[in-house]
Amino acid sequence: MELRAREGDFIETDEGLIFDVKGLIHPPERVIAYLRYYPDPNGHRIRDRIRYKKVYSLDSRYEYLKSRYPLYLFHDKISGERLQGIPRKYIKSIFHPEGLMKKVLQRGRNVEQRKMSILLQKTFELAKLIQSQSGINFNKIGITGSFLVDLETDESDIDLIIYGSRNANIVKKALTTLHSSHQIIIHPYSEKNISDLYEARGKISNLQFDEFVKIEQRKKLQGVYKETDYYIRCIKDWNEIQYKYGDVYYKNLGIATIQGKIIDDTESILTPCKYSIETSKVIDGIKITEQIREIVSFRGRFCEQAQKGEEIEARGKVELVRFENEEYLRLYLGTYNEDYFKILNL
């Protein structure tokens, strides 16, 4: 049986390295996934008496693998880029968010709930609240992040995942309602929360603090539930994927800063998120004659970033996309720390 892995899953290798899977489409011989935890005697996270460290920045992940485990770096012929990926023969275990939700759901129905940590109980409570408000099936909700590999701490966030585009839209509407009807327990980030976020990523995003606050506070897939930060990732379900690895090719044309108008934000809540744009123009970087059709990113911070009708400015990598008999340009965000995406008429 073919091993299937998708965004939100985690993979453990024979060496004990733990990676988080990126995307739903992978090469035949590898799974594209990025290092998240590695064994280290000085680590603050413990699982099965082994200490682990969490690695955050993309640069740090690449440097660690380059110096110690270069076999998990490869040249991807589809994108022409160096990516992180696990050869399938080195996969020891794969962890699925929907599988953890199934276990937690079972515990919640009996006395084993007492064995759940307070934070895991809170995660389950939020999942139940969303399911009750939205009406989607529980098997389309998963628990991901550090909980999935038993490496959470008391400071961990709540990380949920929703499967299916239709379910994602239903959940966003449910969260919009909950932010009003249950605002005492679930609400957008406070200015203090956002101040911390701004220190971590906003200052390099070319956004002023007041711009950053406005954008972050109108997002529904992230916020605070009972004083714990939550983030909900939404991905397409397996039956929505209409192509396989090798059907689409990408060519890096260079870096550009563009301006344009959002004409479709339907997939802005998904990972990868996508925004269709029109009247795009390059204001800095490489010179191109064709219009850029869309903005795409796998980074969660660019989800729900802009809405239909808004004028935007973004900096990222311009790619030529070849799919079947068609070619077009897109702007890909997230490869570089300097990439940003802001609203001009907010």
Rank of each mutant, 00 (worst) to 15 (best):
N167G: 06
Q121N: 10
Q217P: 06
I262H: 06
Y34E: 08
E216N: 11
P41H: 09
L346M: 14
F209L: 15
E98C: 11
D229M: 11
D76Y: 12
G108H: 13
A314Y: 09
K122C: 05
T257W: 03
I11A: 05
S268H: 03
L344K: 12
Q242Y: 11
G85E: 00
Y275L: 11
I141C: 08
M101H: 05
G145V: 03
R51T: 01
G16E: 00
G260M: 10
E327I: 12
K226P: 01
N137D: 15
K203A: 08
K274S: 15
E63K: 15
G145K: 02
T177M: 10
L207Y: 03
I262V: 15
E125L: 14
A306L: 14
K103R: 11
P28C: 00
K308E: 13
H75G: 04
G80A: 10
S60W: 02
K22W: 10
V321K: 06
I262K: 04
K54Q: 07
I86Y: 12
R166Y: 15
T177G: 09
V104E: 07
H182I: 00
D20Y: 14
L346E: 07
L331T: 00
L100N: 02
G8I: 03
D154Y: 11
V111G: 06
I78P: 00
I295D: 07
Y245H: 08
E112M: 10
D159Q: 06
Y37A: 08
G223Q: 02
L333A: 04
M1H: 06
T144L: 14
